Amino acid sequence: MNNSILFTHKELIEKSKLGDRKMQYKLYSLYVDAMFNVSIRIVKIKEDAEDIIQDSFTDAFRHLETFKYQSTFGSWLKRIVVNKSINYLKVKRIPLTAIEEHDYWISEPEEIEDNPLDISKIKDAINKLPHGYQTIINLYLIEGYDHNEIGDILEISVSTSKSQYHRAKKKLVELIS
């Protein structure tokens, strides 16, 4: 990764590590909206996402000394937000749709017509998916996690992540069509 990307906001981060509240607020201001969007896509409830964001920033600032510029600050913070959002769902016992390993078969990719789609139609269709499917779609397509990372985050196998994704994608295509 480009070093200039890794060191984005380095001065703000270093001063925040020293406890400078003004710099912490500037960092917060830079990232709060993006992190809220990450959380709301997972938990779906505005107030819960707001609470998760506050907890995430509190933890991030409390453990800022562990941030070593091995990734961007945004990526590091996003991982905290995603984990807290997923843990919130686990506490509320909102399950992923569980399937058995042997239920999953990879098929050839489906041909999808190249029609321009209305983004609001796609968002509406995602919101109509079962919650577990929404979680997988959001983590894979929107947040950009791979199936290994999703497996770690959700404490499921990689094959379960893949099967959930393929089933969610198939259902999403049905809803959009």
Rank of each mutant, 00 (worst) to 15 (best):
D103C: 07
L64G: 04
K78L: 01
L96I: 14
E100Y: 11
F73W: 05
Y88T: 05
D103Y: 11
W105A: 13
F73Q: 04
F67W: 04
I94W: 01
F67M: 05
S85M: 12
I106A: 12
E108N: 12
I112T: 14
D51P: 00
D55K: 08
E50Y: 04
I80Q: 01
T72E: 07
E111Y: 14
I99S: 10
I94N: 10
K84M: 01
Y69T: 03
D103A: 14
I53M: 11
N87C: 02
D114S: 07
K92V: 02
L77Y: 11
E110V: 13
K92H: 09
D114N: 12
V91C: 12
E108M: 10
W105S: 14
S56D: 06
E101I: 06
Y104Q: 02
D59K: 13
R62D: 14
I52S: 06
S75F: 00
D103T: 11
D103R: 13
P109V: 06
G74R: 12
K84H: 08
I52H: 06
I99M: 09
Y69A: 01
I53R: 06
I52F: 04
E100A: 12
I52M: 03
A60F: 03
F67I: 03
K84N: 15
P95G: 06
E110T: 08
E65F: 05
D114L: 05
E113Q: 09
L64I: 13
Y104T: 05
F73N: 03
T66Q: 15
W105Q: 15
I86R: 07
V82Y: 06
I52W: 05
E110S: 12
S75P: 02
K68H: 10
W105N: 13
S71I: 01
K90V: 00
S75R: 02
S71K: 09
I52P: 03
E100K: 14
D114V: 06
I53V: 15
E113D: 12
I80W: 01
D103P: 00
E108S: 11
K68D: 15
E113S: 11
F57W: 10
P109Y: 11
D103F: 06
T97G: 00
R62P: 00
L89F: 01
V82N: 10
D51K: 11
K90Q: 06
E50S: 10
N115L: 13
S107L: 09
E50T: 04
F67V: 04
K90I: 00
R79F: 00
N83W: 01
E110N: 10
R79Q: 02
I106W: 03
L77A: 10
